[in-house]
Structures are given as C-alpha cells and as structure tokens.
C-alpha cells in the first residue's frame, strides 16, 4: 500500500478490510490479516468486515498441528492491542454457515447485510481479500 494512499496530509481515512475467504485453503486470509496489522502503523480508522467464507476465519477451536500450517486464528485476538476494535460479521453469511456468535473466537458486532452495505458505503477505502 502506498504512503500516499494511507496518509494524505495527516488526514485520517476510513479503511475497511473485507475478508471473504476461509483460512488455510488459500493464502488470502493470512495475507489479509498481515495487511491489517501493517495498516495499524499508519494510525487510520480501520475496520474489518467478515463476509461469506471469511466468517470461518473467526471460528473457535482451530488446530493446525496435524496440517502442519501455522494457526493464525489467535492473532485476531491481538487486534485490540493494535487499536483495531471494529470487527463486523455479516449475519446472513454467519447463519448460512451454521455458525452463531458463540462460535467466534473474538468479540464482534454482528450486522445485517443492509447494515454492512451502509458500513461499506461510508468508507474512503475498501480492500477485499
């Protein structure tokens, strides 16, 4: 991400990172998370959206020992320490996957598709993974 995009005369912009992929099957979820962590250094107004299979990134109880890949799910709990506290999960996506808020490993705000659409529309920058 270019400096210019992130900081224009010190103006704080609203950035939303949209997570739409399940973890482990592809690299998107992990790469997306790393971009989010790096974005924290620019001190912008960052939020995360979990839509479609992206909801699976937050499923409790992930254990990758047998798979031999790094389990990065605990890192979502570190986001609060990075001052990234706005995590939105789309209810329709969550429920379509048989999940409820209790299945998620971090505190989130569950929002309807219509509310999510509003949140997306009010962003300066939306980056999708």
């Amino acid at each position: 991400m270019s400096d210019e995009m992130m900081e224009e005369d010190g103006v704080i912009k609203k950035f939303m990172f949209v997570n739409r992929k399940a973890p482990y099957g592809t690299i998107y979820a992990l790469e997306g998370l790393e971009v989010v962590l790096i974005s924290a250094a620019f001190e912008q107004d960052v939020s995360l959206a979990f839509v479609d299979d992206g909801v699976f990134e937050l499923k409790k109880g992930q254990d990758t020992k047998a798979l031999g890949q790094k389990n990065f799910s605990p890192t979502y709990r570190a986001l609060e320490g990075y001052d990234i506290e706005k995590l939105y999960v789309e209810r329709e996506s969550m429920e379509a996957r048989g999940l409820s808020e209790e299945d998620l490993l971090v505190d989130v705000q569950v929002v309807s598709a219509a509310e999510m659409a509003d949140l997306m529309a009010e962003q300066d920058v939306v980056i999708s993974f």
Binding site: L37, A40, A41, T75, G81, Y82
Partner: peptide, 15 residues
C-alpha cells in the same frame, strides 16, 4: 505464545 505474532513496538510498549 498467546497471539502467534511478534508485536509492533507501539503494541509491545502498551502491553
């Protein structure tokens, strides 16, 4: 061990 990442300095300081 808890978060599976090495924290950024700012985050480390705060923690």
């Amino acid at each position: 061990d808890e978060y599976q990442i090495a924290p950024a300095v700012r985050v480390l300081t705060k923690a």
